[in-house]
Design a protein around this nucleic acid. Structure first.
Lengths: 192, 192
DNA sequence: GTCTATAACTCGATAGAC
DNA sequence: GTCTATCGAGTTATAGAC
């Protein structure tokens, strides 16, 4: 994971994997017959790690569903901070490197995205009564992932947190306007 | 460009480049001493092509500055459509593959992003009087690039236009709310 | 299951003739 | 400037002993 995240799939040689894992080629190939099999296992593992590593820690300390969305984004900001904006999103990196040429990996990457997106959509559903009733929460969840990935990419390219923070600030502006609209639909009620 | 766009930098061998260009290795290496030199020249070329290929055609047929922003995004939708959502953004792909390991390429990629972002910011500046006065147009331009890249990534991973269109629709929602706010600042004036 | 040695191949890059 | 032939290193993957 470390090597694929840092250098990408193609740029990571089996030799480097063996060195870093402290394993000999015979052992690796006994379990993963090809390099791609290892990649697929890794992508399955990322799917398993989504909740325990990315979502649950945020949910444990934040209860407001909207703030949970921004809490997840804050987690990625911390990752950028910890890596000097270098490595970016492990799934996003592989998505762009491999989607065209590795159909099986592409499917697993799409499933990783879908899991992430559904976690966010759950938050939006929990806040449904605070959003304008016509809001497409499914599209909005897609949008949150879009912003996260696009913002990580620019942070990585510029090696600065700034584009990430600017993007999240704009997403926050959008949510504030949605929530303000939502209040217009719910506050008149008690006045009747 | 075609090969790096489709397969990425590392996955494209010099042999494939020679074949596709109909050139022999002696000629290629006479001009580009290393593969990385070719990459850098390609990234410079993308910078040159931004205006004539991406921006100007949209500006020629669309005059409204806000619609110009969405016109540029529509251009990327057309690219997704033409390639079956396969290849994605050529700069974005290279950004995630190489930013960590190729510092000179990373800088040129950042410059490509900056050129794109400034073209969008120009549109936003032209529409400044229609936006809320507190709007950070620089951040908003970053946000538009963020949405474009994040949306392209998801389209590529899912091999569907849907996430791209959903993301652009959400960005449109955001702009509509900003413009509605902007009108609240300008319409009261004639009433004085 | 794990070890070492290595096969089979492709990689980026070069040499030297023309 | 361009050609062909090829180098040496690095690639993924395998063989066969233990």
């Amino acid at each position: 994971m470390e090597l694929f995240h840092r250098h990408g799939y193609n740029a990571t040689g089996i030799a480097a994997i063996l060195r870093q894992a402290g394993v000999n080629s015979g052992s690796l190939y006994y379990i993963f017959p090809t390099k791609e099999d290892l990649l697929l296992a890794l992508l399955e593992r990322y799917k398993e790690l989504l909740w325990p590593l990315v979502i649950q820690p945020v949910f444990d300390r934040v209860s407001d569903p909207i703030e949970r969305v921004f809490g997840v984004l804050e987690g990625y900001r911390q990752m950028l901070l910890a890596t000097g904006c270098g490595m970016g999103c492990p799934i996003g990196n592989l998505a762009l490197e491999l989607s065209d040429t590795h159909p099986v990996a592409r499917k697993l990457i799409a499933e990783n995205f879908e899991g992430w997106r559904l976690a966010i959509r759950g938050c939006l559903d929990d806040a449904a009564d605070r959003l304008p009733p016509e809001t497409d929460r499914d599209h909005l969840a897609t949008f949150v992932l879009t912003v996260m990935e696009g913002a990580m990419m620019q942070a990585k390219a510029h090696r600065t947190l700034e584009p990430f923070e600017a993007s999240v600030a704009q997403l926050r502006e959008y949510f504030e306007r949605l929530l303000a609209d939502g209040r217009e639909w719910s506050t008149p009620k008690p006045e009747r």
